[in-house]
Design a binder for these strands. Structure first.
Lengths: 172, 172
DNA sequence: CCAAATTGTTTTAAGCCTAAAATGTTTCCC
DNA sequence: GGGAAACATTTTAGGCTTAAAACAATTTGG
């Protein structure tokens, strides 16, 4: 009679005080695997963007956000969407304005706010890159069946929700 | 009669020249979700490490590698395991030697090679951090059932293999 | 109205990270 | 043995990233 109890209350007597350190090895392994996958794919995409278009991944990501927002976005919005710090966006935008890919203007109605959008050049270049990028991604995931993809989507949605909940517990 | 053909050869006549751009939106969404999960969890872990132990995530990761190798590792080994550039490891190690967490020596048998290992201090501090870290991870994944965890492990293994294959196709 | 709180952005200081070139060492193989 | 190739690491130059502090503008509540 094995005493296996996965993720349930402990059943032995005097249970409250026992404080058995639970086994979290599986979750740890899962996290490392998740990280490996992301690092692997991200590195591959980074390299291809550099070789093929001489552009960095963060610049591409920022342009991708703006491509979805024809009327532009504020720096804060971009920062939240990209999940990076405000200061990070400031520098990134500076360089992309410099290179002629972005247009930046102060909001008429709130002078704190900077609104940025893709220039014509920026949009054209992004579209070209995005078309190839999509193919790279498809190739990187090529061995997953449509069912695998659906299932992964579902489980990652659950993962995201779980992590957000955990983060919120700490930072209410 | 829907013309849906998921991930199969195209069946229309004159097929070779047609070059229909396939739809890769699902894979793209999957990649973005994967990236979101990783960024979310990584950011959370980074913040907790900083607040709780005043240590950076890369330092923690490097120590984690060394903790598994009591006899030490070469810089190349570390670099491969962590999937970061060589130069990156050089700097990271410099700072950790400086702070007394790492010991570095030139190999007796091959003077090109630097072997690094945790010092007593480094190991002790790492163990303390790792214990809490494991709990954080478990909490971040807390809403996944054991079955979810197994299933995610399986699908991510498949993903990793697929991505590696794709990367190898490009860089033979 | 106006001080305090909030919000949006930039600045700062430090560290992380990469790709590519440079340096030093060993191995290969003729 | 000796030159070429391979290997391990460091250096370089530039960019990315963060947390925290500083600054600026707006909103809020007495």
């Amino acid at each position: 009679m094995p005493a296996e109890s996965e993720r349930t209350e402990m059943l032995d007597s005097e249970t409250k005080a026992v404080e058995t350190p639970e086994d979290h090895a599986d979750e740890l392994r899962l996290w490392l695997r998740l990280l490996t996958c992301t690092t692997l794919i991200e590195g591959e995409v980074r390299g291809r963007l550099r070789q093929r278009f001489d552009v960095t991944l963060p610049r591409f990501d920022l342009m991708a956000q703006l491509d979805k927002a024809p009327d532009g976005m504020t720096l804060s919005d971009v920062s939240k969407r990209m999940m990076v710090s405000n200061g990070n966006v400031t520098g990134l935008v500076e360089r992309l304005v410099e290179s002629g890919h972005l247009d930046r203007r102060t909001s008429e109605t709130d002078r704190r706010v900077q609104v940025i959008r893709l220039t014509k050049l920026g949009r054209a270049e992004f579209r070209k890159m995005a078309a190839e990028h999509e193919i790279w991604i498809a190739d990187l995931f090529a061995d997953l069946s449509p069912k695998d993809v659906r299932e992964l989507m579902r489980l990652l949605a659950k993962t995201k929700a779980s992590a957000q909940k955990s983060a919120a517990r700490r930072r209410p």
